[in-house]
């Protein structure tokens, strides 16, 4: 592999990792703070991508479509929390999985009814179309750089928000002792509603901004859900920092797994078995640290 390919693959791996972080952080927040396993999380990624495709196509502008899509996702999140999720906080994980699995089926059917089962593509916005020439024969697409930048900004805002704002304090307090938080006069139900809406909006937003570089297709939700769960498990359930490190590792391993050529005893390991690499990483981490990199011991 030459230096140019290595550079580009590293950038791609980081960009994929950052995008995964956006999806996985919502998943890990919802689990870590509310104790809810939301397996419908990937559906919101899919919904985001379809929203981007239809809204951007409808208004003819990427940015307006993006803002409108975020609004729709937020409202959807608040509504779903009120309709279903708030009844799950005191239930066991099996019941949470059953309800959120039901949501997957409903969303899949609704998607089929509203948008059909075709594969679509979303054009890259004019402003970000093109590449940056890095060396004479090395160029990198501006859109991917922008995407990575957006993910980093959101990640930083999330860290700051949780560590340094009053709302972040309430969230951490609720995570530590739910009853005591209520007893201090904090309406934890409202905070949970906000976190759920925020988490699924992050997933939908990831789907929207990734639409121009991947395609928009029916199964994209389950694909990202599985990888996001791998990220959350490696990073440690509920840990944002863990999700970030795990997402970047998974992004890089997955990306390089597809371009490296490696034969051992005449058996082609990469890229033939690259699909397994992130699961191998997860198995390794689970063996060494069952609670994940930054998970709390139970």
């Amino acid at each position: 592999m030459d230096a140019a390919t290595f550079f580009i693959q590293t950038m791609n791996g980081i960009q994929y990792g950052l995008l995964l972080f956006l999806v996985a952080s919502g998943l890990t927040l919802i689990f870590g703070i509310m104790g809810v396993i939301n397996i419908a999380h990937g559906s919101f990624y899919m919904i985001g991508a379809y929203l981007a495709w239809s809204l951007m196509g409808w208004v003819g502008n990427f940015w307006i479509g993006l803002v409108a899509g975020v609004m729709v996702a937020l409202v959807l999140g608040l509504l779903l929390e009120w309709l279903f999720i708030r009844f799950l906080y005191d239930r066991d994980h099996l019941q949470q999985v059953l309800v959120t699995y039901g949501l997957i089926l409903i969303f899949s059917e609704l998607r089929s009814m509203i948008w059909g089962d075709d594969v679509h593509s979303v054009p890259i916005p004019e402003l970000l179309n093109g590449s940056i020439q890095i060396t004479e024969n090395l160029a990198y697409p501006i859109y991917r750089l922008w995407l990575s930048g957006v993910c980093i900004v959101i990640a930083v805002l999330m860290f700051l928000g949780i560590q340094h704002t009053r709302l972040g304090m309430m969230i951490r307090a609720g995570e530590s002792d739910r009853e005591m938080t209520k007893a201090l006069g904090i309406n934890i139900g409202l905070i949970y509603r906000f976190i759920f809406a925020l988490g699924i909006t992050l997933a939908a937003f990831s789907g929207m901004i990734s639409a121009p570089i991947s395609s928009v297709f029916p199964g994209m939700g389950s694909q990202v859900l599985i990888v996001s769960f791998v990220v959350v498990v490696i990073g440690g359930l509920g840990s944002i920092k863990g999700a970030m490190i795990a997402a970047l590792s998974v992004g890089l391993i997955d990306t390089f797994g597809k371009v490296i050529h490696l034969d051992i005893f005449g058996i082609n390991i990469f890229p033939e078995m690259s699909g397994m690499s992130i699961f191998a990483l997860m198995a390794l981490i689970l063996t060494l640290r069952p609670q994940g990199l930054f998970g709390r011991e139970h």
Binding site: R172, D177, E179
Partner: peptide, 19 residues
């Protein structure tokens, strides 16, 4: 409460300011 109910993951200052 019995057992004090201190938020372990918050600093002393944050425990107070929160309330």
């Amino acid at each position: 409460p019995e057992g004090r109910g201190i938020f372990q993951n918050l600093s002393v200052k944050e425990n107070l300011l929160l309330a």
